[in-house]
């Protein structure tokens, strides 16, 4: 039983168990086993990375001890930048890079405001969230802006962000996996990852050991910004349009995903496997409940219960294993 105990000591283990439980539950109980239907899985694989990619960055940021509530504004903002550039006749490839750049810039701003004012990022990014949303609403007049004819279905760019691999596997899920892999290596194998953990776990110690914690935090904010830019373009290409409502609610859902994956709200604790599982669990919960005919507007209630249960479970397991 030694390996069982070792496995359970791993913080992401209970998320993994609950995840498997949910998959089995939904597989067996949805009408006509709809959950494991090929089309449902394909749709899930297309949709979940929108939030998932953002959540990966938010998780890394939480490990270094900060939050970013502005993702729900940075994302549509980047999307609008992308669409406007397309309208000006810029090739999608370049517009995409500019959108990532804008994401990085807004992330940099979040980081600078947070480390320079020494305010909790919960407040600073609440401010930037409202600010950028206001700017975006004025700039875009909240009108949707279609890009179907600028990024036609079947074009290389469209296939790279909204296509399928081997006629079935949604490419979005591959992007998610790629980012998870890169950030996982960064977090667990690269020296910068150790600085992220140290910064979140004990900032004074990290500083005393010569780590520039302000820089570490700012870079993490920028990672989140870039991922918002990426997700923005991916989503815009999939729905063939900019929508002012893109990304709404992502700020808290991303945090919920990370918490479900065992990331601490106080920083210093969390892992990439956990964050990935969290980013999968929330959409699966969504999807499964919809298939179970739970009214769409009530699903939020279940996500809320699930988040709280996970936090309680995580801290219980933590106390047991220590």
């Amino acid at each position: 039983m030694e390996w069982v105990r070792n496995f359970l000591r791993y913080r992401a283990a209970n998320t993994f168990l609950v995840f498997i439980g949910l998959v089995i539950f939904f597989s067996l109980l949805t009408p006509n086993y709809l959950f494991v239907d090929r089309r449902n899985l394909a749709a899930l694989g297309k949709l979940f990375p929108d939030l998932g990619v953002v959540a990966l960055g938010v998780g890394v940021l939480m490990i270094c001890g900060e939050f970013d509530l502005s993702v729900s504004s940075v994302l549509p903002f980047c999307s609008y930048v992308f669409v406007r550039l397309l309208y000006r006749g810029i090739a999608p490839f370049w517009a995409f890079w500019v959108a990532l750049g804008v994401g990085a810039l807004l992330g940099l701003l979040n980081g600078l405001i947070t480390v320079k004012t020494k305010m909790p990022s919960f407040i600073t990014t609440l401010g930037t969230m409202m600010f950028w949303r206001g700017v975006l609403y004025i700039w875009s007049k909240m009108m949707p802006a279609g890009i179907r004819n600028l990024v036609p279905s079947g074009s290389p760019f469209e296939r790279a962000f909204a296509g399928t691999v081997g006629s079935f596997f949604p490419v979005q899920a591959l992007w998610f996996a790629l980012f998870a892999l890169i950030l996982g290596i960064l977090l667990h194998y690269h020296r910068f990852g150790n600085w992220i953990y140290a910064t979140g776990d004990n900032r004074d110690a990290a500083r005393a050991m010569g780590i520039n914690t302000d820089l570490v935090k700012t870079i993490c904010f920028m990672i989140v910004g870039v991922l918002c830019g990426f997700s923005a373009c991916m989503q815009a290409v999939r729905i063939g349009s900019f929508a002012a409502t893109q990304g709404i609610g992502f700020e808290l859902r991303a945090i919920a995903a990370c918490v479900v994956g065992g990331t601490s709200l106080r920083g210093g604790v969390g892992s990439m496997p956990g964050i990935v599982l969290g980013a999968l669990t929330i959409p699966i919960l969504d999807n499964g409940l919809i298939l179970l005919r739970v009214p769409v507007f009530g699903i939020s209630a279940f996500i809320g219960i699930a988040t709280i249960l996970f936090v309680v479970l995580n801290s219980y397991v933590e106390r047991k294993t220590r």
Partner: peptide, 21 residues
């Protein structure tokens, strides 16, 4: 420092080499 020298959730090795991995 009293409580400021170590990151409690990081491993012993990662603490010893913190910032100088």
């Amino acid at each position: 420092y009293q409580e400021q020298a170590l990151a409690p959730n990081l491993s012993i090795a990662r603490n010893i080499f913190m910032g100088r991995e």
